[in-house]
Amino acid sequence: MAVLEGVNLKKYYGKVHALDDVSFAIEGNELLAVIGPSGSGKTTLLRSIAGFVKLDGGRIFLHGEDITDLAPEKRNVAMFFQNYALWPHMTVFENIAYGLKLRKIDKKTIKEKVEWALEFLGLEGLADRKPSQLSGGQQQRVALARAIVVEPKVLLLDEPLSNLDAKIRLRIRFELKALQQKLGIPTLYVTHDQEEALSIADRVIVMHEGKILQSGTPEEIYRNPRNLFVADFVGMNTIVKVPAENGLVKVGNITKRIENEQKTASVVIRADEVNIVDATADVSTKEGDLVLIGVIKDRLYLGSKYRYEVEVEDINEPLFVNHEVDVAPGKKVKMIVPEGSYFIF
């Protein structure tokens, strides 16, 4: 049985379909990430599970029990708020202990549990501080401690890292994953940062305009996107439009049949996975690799690599690809894009 299951969830704000028939399930102790651009309905999904959004349709089950109409305070799903929502009039200790106090646990046990949480999250010595006396990273960990100390059935994280500096964010990402595994709490992790989600999630759901477009392991989402939106949303990409005729698209050496009756097709290329060689070089390619010939128009130095603007034969738009080899502008090159690194829709 799934730990947490949402079935045909619907939520409308006037004409906006914040949740449009969303179904999902969390199994075992997995970390399920929900990604999508701003406004795609991620927060609404999380808040409806916590009970703060009244659904217009669908049911939510927690360990098989229907919690759809349960008051938020009776659900035992711990929510982590994007702005932390630490109570400013309480100390760190009081913030973390609050949920335990509500559960009528004796003082001694509360103290033990809070001290465990403080140590677990590296917050020793901060128990008596007020939230305003903490750094952003510390506040984030206090909010996390407050959520996990009550041993919730599910942990709901809404953009937990978005308020941190880019550098800390990268480190905390893995700490968070390690912590989640150590605790074994099933977790729903909402973020607009696809890279963050792909790097720590067991499974990923991609949302757009209130709908789930695809769900699967990070590899499936990245290597096998089902449509243009998903292909474009994950990874670093360059996209060009090419004409389609009678359901056939021709790009470079590749001809692909597409189902729709569309006049143009989009080619999505993972910008970091393109091999650039001299146009005359004789490199062996595999069946299914996309080979494009073009001329380097411009180049940008990025430190570990270069970013090239390439004018490709038979394609009207420039292609932007990254490669570590230094090639001078004006040079004619051959670009080899392996199968699974480009998608045509």
Partner: peptide, 13 residues
């Protein structure tokens, strides 16, 4: 801030 109230509710208040 509504989140102050919601955070308490979420913990069972």
């Amino acid at each position: 801030e509504p989140a102050y109230v919601e955070a308490a509710q979420n913990l069972g208040a």
